[in-house]
Write a protein that binds this DNA or RNA. Structure first.
Length: 419
DNA sequence: TCTGGGGTCCTAGGACCC
DNA sequence: TCTGGGGTCCTAGGACCC
């Protein structure tokens, strides 16, 4: 059996842990730049605030209904996630951390366990130790555990937030209940196509002809169909090094000057290089993109990206930044109002497997330099040491008007309890 | 005025090889 | 009139996830 554990309204719940006065009150969390809603408490969902709602369009509603609004605080969420995962990992030797708020457990050899009780134990323990409410779905395959989890989340009282699909009747009942567009792995395009041929529920989907599924939803769709039929097709996935790493941001305002973009791109490149060194990889190519604000009809639009093959693999901030700025110069065009840019690195090779090139190599001296920079930045705070091509006066700032304290990751923000 | 960020996998088609 | 067969690798684009 597989268990899928999913934190309820994760980001909103993280904020609530340190603000118990917000229990039963509507909470939303906004994306970077306070752009749109990326998490909602149940109370906020009940007010009809959709996922992705554009913040400024809902400002009035937030005020009228007393919605508590938070800017995204990713260090907090990441830290809370680690706490939840570390508790969950005690419940099975086989765990796949699927996302910041979800994990699969493989429950092999648990035949003598009462899985309902086991799930409830997990649920209680995580909530008690972290304050984060979770739902648990258990079933013979991964995709069915996703379905079970949805049921647990939808009917928390009836299920005690734990639902198990352990019989053919339950499987069919669950699949008939689930709308096809809510199936894990069926997105907007596929569900549109499925609805066109009269497929309404997950159950309808499992009744389709294999050939049709393969042709229209490719091999991924076919695997999913089997998995939903109760034939274990998807297995736990090993944690592996990332295959691409990106740092991209929208700006708080439009930029028109190459100089301004160079500073941003350099900073994004440095961030990518740091992440690369963290997983001991070097990259062989990078992508830089820039574009104007697609929502502005009154301004001319421009959007381009460029792939740059590097002459040698590297994870030096200095080199990656230099190449990224070089790439930027090839796509930058005068006369546009730029709203977003990003750097993506890819084609990785292990740091210690880099082959030397006769003509050109990454500067050996950077290795030691980067090590020192990383050490200092870890000890004294992010970006304490920067490249001269980055913004040294911190002109650039993300819009984060309603940022909560960093309760668990910043010493000065730790809460004080009055006795 | 204001609209997020970071990933994965698969497929078709083109370029190239012998 | 008639113009082979069997591969690999790479890339862009499209789908999906949170």
């Amino acid at each position: 059996m597989f268990a899928l554990i999913d934190c309820n309204n994760f980001y909103a719940s993280c904020q609530r842990v340190f603000r118990p006065d917000l229990e039963h009150k509507p909470i939303v969390v906004l994306s970077n730049n306070d752009g749109c809603v990326i998490a909602r408490s149940n109370e906020a969902k009940a007010l009809g605030i959709p996922m992705g709602a554009v913040a400024y369009q809902y400002e009035k509603l937030f005020e009228e209904k007393g919605v508590h609004v938070f800017s995204a605080n990713f260090p907090l969420y990441g830290d809370m996630s680690q706490r939840v995962m570390s508790i969950l990992s005690a419940y099975s030797p086989e765990i796949e951390i699927y996302s910041i708020d979800e994990a699969f457990l493989k429950l092999s050899g648990f035949e003598l366990y009462n899985l309902q009780t086991y799930g409830e134990e997990m649920q209680k323990r995580v909530t008690k130790c972290t304050g984060i409410p979770i739902s648990v779905g258990i079933a013979p395959t991964k995709s069915l555990s996703k379905v079970a989890n949805k049921i647990a989340k939808k009917f928390p009282d009836k299920t005690k937030s734990v639902y198990i699909i352990d019989s053919e009747e339950k499987r069919i009942k669950a699949l008939k209940w689930l709308k096809v567009e809510d199936v894990w792995g069926i997105g907007r395009q596929h569900s549109k196509r499925l609805q066109n041929i009269g497929i309404r529920t997950a159950y309808d989907f499992t009744q389709l002809d294999d050939k049709w599924v393969k042709k229209n939803l490719a091999i991924v769709g076919l695997r999913l169909k089997q998995d939903l039929q109760g034939i274990p097709t998807l297995n736990l996935e090993e944690i592996q090094a990332k295959k691409s790493i990106a740092t991209t941001r929208s700006f708080d305002q439009n930029y028109t000057e190459l100089k301004q973009l160079e500073e941003r791109v350099s900073t994004f490149a440095v961030s990518c290089a740091e992440k690369l060194r963290n997983q001991n990889s070097c990259c062989n190519s990078l992508i830089v993109f820039i574009h104007t604000n697609p929502h502005r009809n009154d301004l001319p639009q421009y959007s381009r990206n460029i792939v740059l093959k590097l002459p040698f693999p590297t994870n030096s901030s200095i080199e990656i930044s230099r190449f990224a700025i070089e790439a930027l110069s090839k796509i930058f065009k005068e006369g546009y109002h730029y709203k977003k840019a990003g750097v993506i690195v890819q084609d990785f090779i292990d740091e210690d497997k880099v082959q030397f090139n006769i003509f050109e190599n990454s500067d050996e001296r950077h290795k030691q330099l980067m090590k020192s920079i990383d050490k200092i930045n870890t000890a004294f705070g992010q970006q304490k040491i920067r490249l001269a091509s980055q913004d040294l006066k911190r002109v650039w700032k993300m819009k984060q008007e309603r940022l909560s304290p960093f309760y668990t990751t910043k010493l000065s923000d730790i809460i004080t309890i009055k006795v």
